[in-house]
């Protein structure tokens, strides 16, 4: 989508939303994801007799097609609910569809670094890395406390009522794997057997919580003081909160700093104990290990999904091609975890 087109269409939309005169500054494209395009812009809102307010914003325009569980308006409502619950997320600004001919929403542009390699390695983030485990744990506790009753977030996918959460997540991951794998992966098969015989015991009738679904270094904004905002909510779902704690420990998100098992910045236990303090109860380490194994398998299956796009000629990119050779990294880590050799 061309910035000129966006500028032309977005001004009347924002003027209707704000009931004021609006001017756009500095509109340009940002690195987006596979499912949507991203733009940065400043909206200058002017009301007669008042000083102009400048809103630094990010615009997310959802691409047509693509596999996603929910759309722009839903994600906008999710950010509203998260903000109300005190989770560190960008403030949502406005959502629409007709104005751009595609679903979109705007949110506050929070300053900070999202590139994992820099957060893990650069000296200027050294102090941030000290405080991040506790900040990440508190953010997760706030996310997991978001109330799911009331119907506003019913679009979030999740297990059927009464269905055990962990078993249903393994079922869904296995279905995805069977649907997209072009070659046999014996390590994934042996992992699926391991997961099924190590399902964490959940309290009978335990209700699912809001799970971010992609909570890791790389999807959070960090500055020199630490965590600024949690981004990338498109994989959010109802599930077991410990899934998020396992996912951030997946080795592929350590950016080469393999000995620091929490996203390359600290030991995973620093997150776990801070999380226990934030939620006010203990967390079973065997269940956390289950979710870390599940997370490594999930990333492994996601690499198969991505390379499928290359193999079918849908996305002929060298990046997707080379991701096909990263599946083995998850296989190695899965064997280490299953056989008790992982750090």
């Amino acid at each position: 989508m061309k910035p000129e087109f966006i500028a032309e269409r977005l001004v009347p939309f924002l003027e209707a939303e704000t009931g004021a005169s609006v001017r756009l500054d500095g509109l340009r494209s940002m690195t987006g994801g596979a499912t949507r395009e991203a733009f940065r812009l400043d909206a200058v809102v002017e009301r007669p007799g008042q000083a102009a307010e400048t809103h630094p914003l990010v615009l997310l325009v959802f691409r047509p097609g693509g596999q996603r569980a929910f759309g722009a308006r839903e994600e906008f409502r999710l950010l509203e609910a998260l903000g109300r619950a005190g989770a560190p997320v960008p403030r949502p600004f406005a959502a629409g569809e007709e104005a751009l001919g595609r679903p979109f929403y705007l949110m506050e542009r929070v300053p900070g670094e999202a590139i994992g390699r820099r957060i893990v390695r650069e000296e200027r983030f050294a102090a941030a890395r000290e405080v991040l485990p506790v900040q990440l744990a508190r953010a997760l506790a706030a996310i997991h406390r978001v109330p799911l009753e009331g119907g506003a977030l019913d679009f979030l996918p999740g297990p059927a009522p009464g269905e055990p959460i962990a078993a249903s997540e393994v079922d869904r991951l296995e279905q995805l794997y069977r649907a997209i794998a072009v070659e046999p992966h014996p390590v994934f098969e042996i992992t699926l057997r391991w997961l099924r015989s190590n399902l964490p015991a959940s309290a009978p009738g335990a209700a699912p919580a809001l799970v971010h679904g992609d909570f890791r270094i790389g999807n959070v904004l960090v500055d020199e003081q630490g965590l600024r905002a949690v981004l990338d909510w498109e994989l959010a779902h109802r599930g077991d909160p410990l899934e998020d704690l396992g996912w951030i420990c997946v080795r592929s998100w350590r950016f080469g700093n393999d000995r620091r098992t929490l996203g390359g910045i600290a030991d995973r236990e620093a997150l776990f104990s801070a999380y226990e303090e934030a939620v006010g109860h203990g967390v079973d380490r065997a269940a956390l290990r289950f979710w870390e194994v599940y997370g490594n398998l999930r990333w492994g299956v996601f690499t198969l999904v991505q390379v499928r796009g290359f193999l079918e000629g849908i996305v002929p990119s060298i990046e997707l091609a080379s991701i096909g050779r990263r599946t083995a990294e998850t296989e190695w880590e899965l064997l280490q975890l299953i056989e008790g050799r992982a750090r």
Binding site: V187, R325, R326, A328, E329, E331, W332, L335
Partner: peptide
């Protein structure tokens, strides 16, 4: 898997 990683 080790043989795959020696390459990749």
């Amino acid at each position: 898997v080790r043989a795959k990683l020696v390459v990749s």
